[in-house]
């Protein structure tokens, strides 16, 4: 009886399991398509929410700097400027520090220090934006206002970048807080890249009598150049979209000023501050369009970063294969 039952059950099972297989494959496929649906959803929502503003203001939206809810004139230039400048400041601060730290972690540090230090940097990445903002308001800003900014003004006041009144909240403060936020990502990506540089490279340089720094420069840095650039752009992608901490320290003033002590405003901050309170339809449309611009430029930055990092890994795998 048992022998009779087995073949029939197997026969019955087969089509059923095929159905199960197919159903499961389709289920997982549908779920993986979720990401595509989400990207389309974001683009569609933002475009739908802003089409009136796009048709009304056209290109002027990106090129004019009046943000005037009374006259219903909306130009996003100060926000674009603020986003770009605060992000670039952050990169200027973060990239050298991150790469130097990555070098320290992969090439120089005593072995026992590497893991704890790397973990510490990962912990910094885990600190929420809003908490960094809280710290920014009550610790960093007062310190910048009382000590760092006056010193900067005394030393570099002759340039246009460090002039004017010192409020504390400022473009520079925004840049510094973003720098703190993107240090961990750039450092960890840079570290991964340097770790993947084949040791053969280093040994070859040592064999030529190079010092430790020359090995790093010749064998590691020049080799990893593209990847490090990719890491920086990845950091830029994060920097552009940073919201809470920046909103809390940048001063929220839509203006274009050369001085880094002057307050600024970013695309993300203006959405955070004004989105729930835009009284008229056009105002809300303009904010949706700001969202669209922000979405566009972060996607571009991320595309570029992926591309750079991808060519880097391709280079590595082909070299290793050789």
């Amino acid at each position: 009886m048992a022998t009779a039952a087995v073949p029939t059950s197997v026969l019955q099972l087969r089509p059923a399991s095929r159905f199960g297989d197919r159903a499961f494959e389709w289920l997982t496929f549908a779920m993986s398509l979720g990401v595509v649906v989400l990207v389309i959803l974001v683009g569609w929502q933002l475009a739908r929410g802003s089409h009136l503003a796009i048709t009304k203001f056209g290109f002027h939206f990106l090129a004019t700097s009046t943000w005037d809810p009374v006259a219903e004139q909306y130009g996003a230039l100060p926000f674009i400027y603020g986003t770009v400048v605060s992000s670039l400041l952050a990169l200027i601060i973060a990239v050298p520090l991150s790469i130097a730290t990555a070098i320290y972690l992969t090439e120089l540090a005593p072995l026992w220090i590497r893991q704890p230090l790397a973990s510490g940097i990962e912990m910094l990445a885990a600190i929420p934006s809003v908490i960094l903002g809280l710290w920014g308001i009550f610790v960093m800003i007062p310190w910048l206002r009382a000590h760092a900014f006056p010193a900067l003004k005394a030393a570099l006041g002759w340039t246009p970048f460090f002039t004017g009144p010192i409020y504390g909240v400022s473009m520079l403060a925004g840049g510094i807080i973003i720098a703190i936020m993107i240090l961990p990502i750039i450092t960890s990506v840079a570290r991964e890249i340097m770790r993947s540089v084949p040791n053969l490279q280093r040994e070859a340089a040592y064999a030529l009598g190079a010092t430790k720094w020359e090995v790093t420069r010749i064998a590691v840095l020049s080799y990893a150049k593209n990847g490090l650039f990719g890491a920086a752009i990845l950091g830029l992608g994060r920097a552009l979209g940073e919201t809470m901490a920046v909103t809390m320290v940048i001063g929220n003033t839509p203006q274009i000023k050369a001085s880094l002590f002057a307050p600024g405003y970013t695309l993300a901050s203006v959405i955070a501050n004004e989105f729930t309170e835009a009284t008229t339809d056009m105002y809300l449309q303009a904010l949706f369009e700001i969202g669209l611009v922000l979405f566009g430029i972060t996607i571009l930055a991320n595309l570029l970063a992926q591309l750079l990092l991808k060519t880097m890994t391709r280079k590595m795998t082909t070299r290793v294969a050789q």
């Binding site: 929502q45 929410g49 979209g241 989105f275 922000l294 996607i299």
Partner: peptide, 17 residues
């Protein structure tokens, strides 16, 4: 690639959407 792009979408945008 799309997933990585999504990872890079600023969190404020999710609120708007």
């Amino acid at each position: 690639f799309v997933a990585d792009v999504l990872n890079g979408v600023p969190s404020i945008i999710w609120g708007v959407v």
